[in-house]
């Protein structure tokens, strides 16, 4: 049954209110439909729109917001 209360609790943040994206790992790519199956740090999988960051490859880390990848989480650029 669909929950009557919002999913995002006051301890975990929300998909839109902070406009904060999360890093997700690409598991599988569906190039024809412009989608990728991705997993969040907790292992929860979801389908992600990849049009804005293509081409993507399995194993890459994408920055995902509201079901759309808006950038990459690059290991090379990590600041100390």
């Amino acid at each position: 049954m669909e929950s009557l209360t919002p999913h995002c609790g006051h301890t975990s943040g929300c998909i839109t209110c902070g406009d904060e994206a999360i890093a997700m790992k690409v598991l599988r790519v569906d190039r024809e439909r412009g989608l990728a199956l991705c997993a969040d740090p907790g292992g929860v999988r979801s389908s992600v729109e990849t049009a804005l960051v293509e081409p993507v490859e399995p194993g890459e880390s994408l920055l995902v917001h509201a079901g759309t990848a808006i950038g990459r989480d690059s290991e090379q650029g990590v600041a100390a």
């Binding site: 839109t16 406009d19 729109e49 049009a51 804005l52 917001h65 509201a66 079901g67 759309t68 808006i70």
Partner: peptide, 14 residues
């Protein structure tokens, strides 16, 4: 649809 430029691309693509 709600959000800053972080969310707007997702709405636009949809």
């Amino acid at each position: 649809a709600l959000g800053f430029e972080t969310t707007a691309p997702s709405t636009a693509l949809t």
